[in-house]
Computed example of a mutant assay.
Amino acid sequence: MNQILSPERVRADVAELIGCDPAEIAPDDNLNDLGLDSVRTMALVERWRGAGAATLDYADLAEQPELAHWTELLTGGAA
């Protein structure tokens, strides 16, 4: 989607919203199970749109709430 977002930034942004250390999130963890709800997911969508992921929408993330999927979607690389 873009190269503005790095895998590290995606991980850090998610960790910030669920209140944990970025290293605690495994690539295949279900982020909803870790406490990421729809409101926080929308906050990430808006944050990442502002960083250049203009075509990102909530459904892109809600469909598969795993860090590895989101990282691939946003950066084209692995988590």
Score class of each variant (00 low, 15 high):
Glu16Ala: 13
Thr55Ala: 15
Gly50His: 04
Leu34Pro: 04
Ala26Pro: 04
Glu24Ser: 15
Arg49Glu: 10
Ala43Phe: 00
Ala59Arg: 07
Leu74Cys: 07
Asp37Trp: 12
Ala15Gly: 14
Gln64Glu: 14
Ser38Phe: 08
Arg11Pro: 08
Thr71Met: 05
Cys20Thr: 15
Ser38Val: 08
Gln3Arg: 08
Glu72Tyr: 04
Thr75Tyr: 07
Asp29Val: 02
Ile4Met: 14
Leu56His: 13
Trp70Gly: 01
Asp60Val: 00
Cys20Ser: 14
Ala53Gln: 11
Ala43Trp: 02
Glu63Met: 03
Glu16Arg: 03
Asp37Glu: 08
Pro27Ser: 03
Ile4Ser: 15
Glu72Gly: 11
Ala79Ile: 06
Val39Lys: 14
Val10Ile: 01
Glu63Trp: 04
Gly19Arg: 06
Ala59Val: 12
Gly19Phe: 09
Glu16Gly: 07
Asn30His: 11
Leu36Asp: 00
Met1Val: 13
Thr41Asp: 01
Asp57Leu: 02
Asn30Leu: 04
Ala54Thr: 14
Val45Ile: 05
Asp28Asn: 13
Pro27Val: 02
Ala62Leu: 06
Arg49Gly: 15
Glu24His: 13
Met1Tyr: 12
Gly52Lys: 07
Cys20Met: 15
Leu34Ile: 06
Leu31Thr: 04
Arg40Phe: 14
Trp70His: 00
Ser6Lys: 01
Trp70Ala: 00
Pro65Val: 00
Ser38Thr: 11
Asp29Arg: 00
Ala23Lys: 13
Ala54Gly: 10
Gly76Arg: 00
Ala59Gln: 13
Thr55Met: 09
Leu34Ser: 12
Asp21Ile: 06
Leu44Arg: 07
Ala62Glu: 06
Ala12Phe: 03
Ala62Lys: 07
Arg49Tyr: 11
Ala15Thr: 14
Ala15Lys: 01
Arg40Asp: 03
Pro27Ile: 00
Asp33Tyr: 09
Asp13Met: 01
Ile18Leu: 15
Gly52Thr: 06
Leu17His: 10
Pro7His: 01
Asn2His: 12
Ala15Cys: 11
Gly19Leu: 02
Leu74Gln: 06
Pro27Arg: 00
Val45Gln: 05
Ser38Asp: 02
Cys20Asn: 11
Gly76Ile: 05
Leu67Arg: 00
Glu46Phe: 06
Asp33Ser: 12
Glu16Met: 08
Gln64Arg: 15
Gly52Ile: 03
Asp33Gly: 08
Tyr58Ser: 05
Ala62Val: 08
Pro22Trp: 02
Glu63Ala: 11
Leu17Lys: 02
His69Thr: 13
Trp70Glu: 00
Ser6Gly: 03
Gln64Met: 15
Asn32Trp: 13
Gly52Met: 04
Gly76Ser: 08
Thr75Glu: 03
Ala12Ser: 13
Gly77Val: 09
Gly52Asp: 09
Asp28Thr: 11
Ala15Ser: 02
Thr75Lys: 11
Asp33Met: 12
His69Arg: 07
Met1Gly: 15
Glu24Leu: 05
Leu67Ile: 02
Val45Cys: 08
Ala53Leu: 09
Glu8Arg: 00
Val39His: 11
Pro65Asn: 03
Trp70Asp: 03
Ile18Glu: 02
Glu72Met: 12
Arg40Trp: 10
Glu63Asp: 13
Met1Ser: 14
Arg40His: 07
Ala53Lys: 01
Leu56Thr: 05
Leu67Thr: 05
Asp13Gly: 03
Leu44Phe: 08
Ile18Tyr: 10
